[in-house]
């Protein structure tokens, strides 16, 4: 299973998402062509209702604990179903890479 599929499967199982997007953004960065290092996750779930952002992110970090050991960067956008509706279903763009700490790519 690719890293992307693993991430998707785990998040689906844990959060029963209303909306889930896992994007491999590795191509935006200066790494070897087959690297699986930079991901962006947009996750909308009722599991986040009433939780502050830091707790929402902690839940995701915990779920992807093993994967986070291997990947270099994760852009994470979590929303409750109501917030997602208010935003008309759009998550912010990820920043361009500036090459810092590139040696950490495994």
């Amino acid at each position: 299973m690719s890293m992307q599929e693993t991430i998707e499967t785990k998040l689906k199982e844990t959060f029963d998402p209303v909306h889930l997007e896992v994007e491999n953004e590795t191509h935006m960065h200066n790494v070897p062509p087959d690297a699986e290092s930079h991901y962006k996750i947009t996750l909308v779930s009722a599991a986040f209702d009433g939780l502050p952002l830091i707790k929402q992110h902690r839940l995701v970090n915990e779920t992807l604990k093993e994967e986070l050991q291997k990947i270099h960067a994760l852009a994470l956008h979590t929303y409750t179903p109501d917030q997602w509706f208010e935003r008309s279903g759009k998550a912010p763009e990820s920043p361009p890479c500036l090459d810092g700490g590139n040696a950490k790519i495994g």
Binding site: A73, A75, P95, C97, L98, D99, G100, G101
Partner: peptide, 15 residues
Amino acid sequence: MKGTPQMPQCGFSSR
């Protein structure tokens, strides 16, 4: 952060 506010070395830190 990675780098400094004047010279960040990572897009996430920069933002």
